[in-house]
């Protein structure tokens, strides 16, 4: 298959996956509105919402949270659900290799991340002192991608290795510890020392620090790049292993 065909097919798969998900409004609201609601309830009423640096950092944290919930639910639970449907098997009889399906899924998740970020950023801009100079926009987007990759890989790993029920349970039980522990809800500055030292090893914390640095320009803590790199490698291997194992199981 030529590259242009693959690109066209990836677009096709992304489009229909998107339509399929969007028609279940509660699924969309759950993953895209939750970060915005958290901003409204937990950040806006606080006094630090009027401090530019703190408000920007808080918004950045919630942006990472948006990426994580899409990764765990859209990828993790979504993939597990789809694998259980015969439609997934049917698409394998169509003349498309595995890459259009995977790339389509990636794009689909990206679309939901954007859907989650737009109201979040808009409200942060309107209701808090958070600022993002245009010069930092590209850097922030890149940081979000880098922060999102290990989370996305964890989602894919869950989706391809578990049943729907198990994936849902695992996604839910990972969501809160990773969010709180990674400082996505409460800023890590408020953590006691022991929690902070655990937090430093979490992918969400490393991702959060990276995005906060990209938006506000504070110094990046020393280990962040290594922790994020390590998780990227680890979760990436998990995702590849789960995907191959699934291929081998269902399509031997």
């Amino acid at each position: 298959m030529s590259t242009s065909t693959n690109v066209r097919l990836a677009g096709l798969h992304a489009r229909y996956q998107f339509v399929e998900t969007v028609r279940v409004p509660i699924a969309v609201i759950g993953t895209t509105l939750f970060p915005t609601l958290s901003l409204l309830f937990f950040i806006v009423p606080q006094s630090f919402a009027q401090d530019p640096a703190a408000a920007t950092a808080a918004t950045a944290q919630l942006a990472v949270f948006a990426v994580m919930s899409v990764s765990l639910f859209n990828y993790g639970v979504g993939v597990a659900e789809e694998r259980a449907l015969p439609w997934d098997g049917y698409t394998r009889t169509l003349p498309a290799g595995p890459s259009p399906r995977l790339v389509g899924r990636l794009l689909n998740g990206l679309a939901f991340v954007i859907l989650g970020l737009v109201p979040l950023v808009l409200l942060a801009w309107l209701l808090t002192a958070a600022t993002l100079p245009p010069s930092r926009l590209a850097l922030t987007a890149a940081a979000l991608l880098a922060a999102g990759f290990p989370l996305f890989a964890i989602g894919i790993g869950i989706g391809y290795s578990m049943s729907t029920k198990a994936a849902l349970a695992v996604a839910q039980s990972l969501l809160l510890p990773l969010a709180f522990g990674g400082g996505l809800f409460l800023p890590p500055e408020t953590f006691p020392g022991w929690l902070n030292s655990i937090s430093m090893w979490l992918p969400t914390r490393a991702g959060r620090d990276l995005v906060v640095t990209a938006t506000t320009g504070v110094d990046l803590p020393g280990p962040t790049v290594f922790v994020l790199g390590g998780w990227t490698l680890l979760a990436g291997s998990l995702a590849v292993w789960a995907y191959r194992r699934d291929e081998g199981r269902r399509f031997r």
Partner: peptide, 21 residues
């Protein structure tokens, strides 16, 4: 090899149609 399936038509199972499409 995906290219071999260009001239092939298959039926999905009826229970497998994406319900929201």
């Amino acid at each position: 090899d995906a290219a071999r399936r260009r001239r092939l038509g298959c039926t999905p199972q009826e229970t497998g149609l994406p319900p929201t499409l």
